[in-house]
């Protein structure tokens, strides 16, 4: 069993909990030990939300700063706010059309820490298709294409299918597929 710590950061309403739930289910299916936690402010909508995902022999449900293998910034400011969770050599994937959303000082430090920075305009693609709520699945698809992630595309696809209501299934799988292809191309 490989250990993996991931963090999904964004704002309420972006489907952050669903994103982490996909990985919980996929890991459970394999029989891996998982833990996790969600943190959110007082707001029902629009507040900062972070979901922690931990796999492997660990005790605490929270990712400790400096130990995340992956950080997904579903919203660019929230991604930035949580950079300190990343470990050296980790992956930062941000939902943005380009990397101009990362200030130069942070970019320099990310490079020095050997962190691989990816951007993908999931919001843009999802909005263009008039399905703004599928942005999370584009990002997950993208993530699965990265060799460092111990989950395969088919495995995640199967989990998404099991967790999605029939009415949204086609849209979700479409987003996952497009994200995956984009991620493969950027490998």
């Amino acid at each position: 069993m490989s250990a993996l710590n991931m963090l999904f950061a964004g704002v309420g309403g972006q489907g952050i909990l669903f994103a982490s739930k996909i990985f919980f289910e996929a890991a459970m299916k394999r029989g891996d030990k998982v833990m996790g936690a969600e943190t959110h402010g007082m707001s029902q909508r629009g507040g900062s939300v972070v979901s922690h995902f931990k796999m492997g022999d660990q005790s605490s449900a929270m990712v400790i700063p400096g130990t995340a293998d992956v950080l997904v910034g579903l919203e660019r400011t929230e991604g930035l706010r949580n950079l300190e969770f990343l470990r050296g050599g980790g992956i930062y994937l941000v939902n943005a059309p380009d990397l101009s959303c990362i200030p130069e000082s942070a970019m320099k430090q990310l490079r020095e820490s050997d962190i691989k920075v990816h951007n993908f305009d999931a919001d843009g693609v999802a909005m263009a298709k008039k399905k703004p709520l599928t942005a999370n699945l584009y990002l997950i698809g993208y993530l699965c294409a990265q060799s460092e992630i111990p989950f395969g595309h088919d495995e995640i696809k199967e989990t998404v299918s099991a967790l999605t209501k029939p009415a949204f299934l086609a849209d979700n799988l479409d987003a996952l597929q497009i994200g995956y292809e984009k991620g493969k191309a950027q490998q």
């Binding site: 998982v34 936690a37 449900a61």
Partner: peptide, 9 residues
């Protein structure tokens, strides 16, 4: 809080 809102198998 972290026990209440943590997840574990």
């Amino acid at each position: 809080l972290r026990v209440c809102h943590g997840r574990e198998s």
